[in-house]
Design a binder for these strands. Structure first.
Length: 427
RNA sequence: GGAGAGAUGGCUGAGUGGCCGAAAGCACCGGUCUUGAAAACCGGCAGGGAUGUAAGUCUCUCGUGAGUUCGAAUCUCACUCUCUCCGCCA
C-alpha cells in the first residue's frame, strides 16, 4: 500500500510510473486523489465537535465534584451530539472506501526498471554457464520422469486432479535432497534462519503481502474458515512480524523456509499443461528479508545472489533478467527473475523471482522498527525471492543431466544429499 | 465438542465511571560521576490522525466492533484470540 499523503503530494510522479504498469486501476487512483480533501475536511469537522464535547465533560466533572449544577452543560453536550449526528459514520465510511481503493493500487517502481509491456521487454542482466551440447536426441523431463518411473502424472490426476503429480522412489528422494541442500546452503552460508511456517494463512496476512484483495481467484480457499492455502511461504514468513515494532538491532532479519505452495492457476488453462512446470501444488524454498530502508537495494542484490548460488552449485546454466514495468508484480518495486536453461524446451524458464517491496508490504502489514537515533517508528523494507522453486529445479536437473540411455546423473554438489549418483529406470 | 479464566505501552504489571494515554518495575536513550566500564543518581521514553514553517494545539486508540453515559481501560452486548481442565485425537 502506498502512503496516502505521499500519493497526494506526488501525483504526477506516480502517474508517470503507473502508465507502464499492466492493468493499473485508474478509477481507484482517481477516487483516492479526489476524495482526500473531502476526507480532511470531515476530520476537522468531527474533531471540532469532539473537542467541544470533551471540554464540557471536563467541566461537568469539576462541577459535580464541587457540588455545582451541571444540567445546562449536559444539555448542551447532548445538543452537540445531535449536530454531529452521522458525521462520524460518514467519515468512517469514506476512510474505509479510500483504504479499499488504496489496497488495489500497485507499488511505485524503482527508477532502474525499464519501461515495457510484457515479458519480451525484460532486460537481460547476465548469462551464466553454457547450455550443454547433446550428441543424441534429448527428451523432456516429462518423458524422462515417466520412463524412469520417478514421476507419475496419471495416478496423481486420478487421486486429485490435473496439475498434480506424485514423485516416486528416487524422484521423491531427489526432491527432498534438493530442499535440504537449499536450506543448508542458505542457513550455513548466507546467514538465513530456517522457519517452518503454517501452510494456511488468514485474509489479513494475505492482505499484508498483497495477494488480497486483488488476486483472490489465484488462491485455494478453505471452506468455512477464514483461511487459504498459501501460494508461497512469502505470505506466512513476511507476516511473522505483522503489527510489530522491531528494534533497529533486529534488522536485517533473514529467514528461509521450505513449504509446499498452492495455486489455483485460474486463467492459465492452456499454459504449460505438460509436465510439472505449472502445478497446483509445488515445493519452494523461500528467502525473506526484513531490512532497514537505507540498505534494501543492497539486500536485494545479496538475496538474488543467494538464489543464484544454488544454480551455480548445481551447475545449471541460467540468466538473470530485470523485469520491465509491465511484467513487474503488483507489490514489487523491482524484480529480478532467474531463468534456468531447459534443454527440453530449448528455452530459459523462470525458476526464481527476487523482489524488493520497499515499504509497500510493511505498510499493509504494519511492520515497523524504532530508529536508533530516536523519533517515530518507520516501516521496514521487505524482500523475498525463491531460493529456489524445487520442482522446476528437479525439471532442470533431469533435462540438463540426462544421458543417452535415458538415465540421469546427479550433480556433484547434490550427491551427498541424494546418496546416489545416478537415476536409472526403476520400473 | 463441554466448563472456566483472561487480553492494558517494547516487556512485566497496577488500575471497577471524571483528577487516566494510564502507577511501578524492566528494557532503551541522554546526562552526572569514572582513566574506561559497571553501580548509583538525574532526566527522557506508546501509536495513528488533523492542523501548523515550527514550537505547539486538537483528536482517536487499554484485543476488535457496537452500545449505555454529559463523561468509559473501567458498565452492557457481539466477535476474535490466548490459557487451564474434561472429552476426542496424530
Amino acid at each position: 500500500m502506498l502512503d496516502l499523503r505521499w500519493l497526494v503530494e506526488n501525483e504526477a510522479t506516480y502517474k508517470n510510473c503507473l502508465k507502464t504498469r499492466n492493468n493499473f486501476p485508474k478509477d481507484s487512483l482517481e477516487f483516492v486523489l479526489s476524495k482526500d480533501s473531502e476526507r480532511r475536511k470531515l476530520i476537522q469537522e468531527v474533531e471540532a465537535f469532539r473537542a467541544q464535547k470533551n471540554q464540557i465533560a471536563k467541566e461537568v466533572g469539576q462541577l459535580k465534584r464541587t457540588g455545582g449544577d451541571a444540567s445546562a452543560l449536559m444539555e448542551k453536550s447532548i445538543q452537540i451530539s445531535k449536530n454531529m449526528d452521522g458525521l462520524d459514520a460518514k467519515l468512517n465510511e469514506l476512510n474505509q472506501e479510500i483504504e479499499n481503493h488504496l489496497l488495489s493500487i500497485p507499488n511505485m517502481l524503482h527508477s532502474d526498471v525499464p519501461e515495457g509491456k510484457g515479458a519480451e521487454e525484460n532486460k537481460l542482466i547476465k548469462t551464466i554457464g553454457t547450455p550443454r551440447k547433446f550428441d543424441f536426441d534429448i527428451k523432456d523431463h516429462h518423458d524422462l520422469g515417466v520412463n524412469l518411473g520417478i514421476i507419475d502424472f496419471d495416478r496423481a490426476s486420478r487421486m486429485a486432479s490435473t496439475r498434480f503429480t506424485t514423485l516416486v522412489g528416487k524422484g521423491a528422494k531427489l526432491e527432498r535432497a534438493l530442499i535440504q541442500f537449499m536450506l543448508d546452503l542458505h542457513t550455513e552460508k548466507h546467514g538465513y534462519t530456517e522457519m517452518l511456517p503454517p501452510l494456511m494463512a488468514n485474509s489479513k496476512a494475505l492482505t499484508g503481502t498483497s495477494q488480497l484483495p486483488k488476486f483472490k481467484e489465484d488462491l485455494f480457499k478453505i471452506d468455512g474458515f477464514d483461511l487459504f492455502l498459501i501460494p508461497t511461504a512469502e505470505v506466512t514468513i513476511t507476516n511473522y512480524f505483522r503489527e510489530e515494532i522491531l528494534g533497529e538491532d533486529q534488522l536485517p532479519s533473514l529467514f528461509t523456509g521450505y513449504t509446499p505452495c498452492f495455486r489455483s492457476e485460474a486463467g492459465s488453462y492452456g499454459k504449460d499443461t505438460r509436465g510439472l512446470i505449472r502445478q497446483h501444488q509445488f515445493d519452494k524454498v523461500e528467502l525473506v528479508q526484513f531490512c532497514h530502508p537505507d540498505y534494501s537495494w543492497q539486500a536485494h542484490e545479496l538475496l538474488t545472489s543467494a538464489a543464484e548460488k544454488v544454480l551455480e552449485l548445481l551447475e545449471l546454466p541460467y540468466q538473470r533478467m530485470l523485469l520491465c514495468s509491465g511484467d513487474t508484480g503488483f507489490g514489487a518495486a523491482k524484480t529480478y527473475d532467474l531463468e534456468v536453461w531447459l534443454p527440453g524446451q530449448s528455452a530459459y524458464r523462470e525458476i526464481s523471482s527476487c523482489s524488493n517491496f520497499c515499504d509497500f508490504q510493511a505498510r499493509r502489514a504494519g511492520i515497523r522498527f524504532k530508529p536508533k537515533e530516536g523519533g517515530k517508528p518507520r516501516f521496514v523494507h521487505t524482500l523475498n525471492g525463491s531460493g529456489l522453486a524445487v520442482g522446476r529445479t528437479l525439471v532442470a536437473i533431469l533435462e540438463n543431466y540426462q544421458e543417452k540411455d535415458g538415465s540421469v546423473t546427479i550433480p556433484k554438489a547434490l550427491q551427498k544429499y541424494t546418496g546416489f549418483e545416478r537415476i536409472e529406470s526403476q520400473k
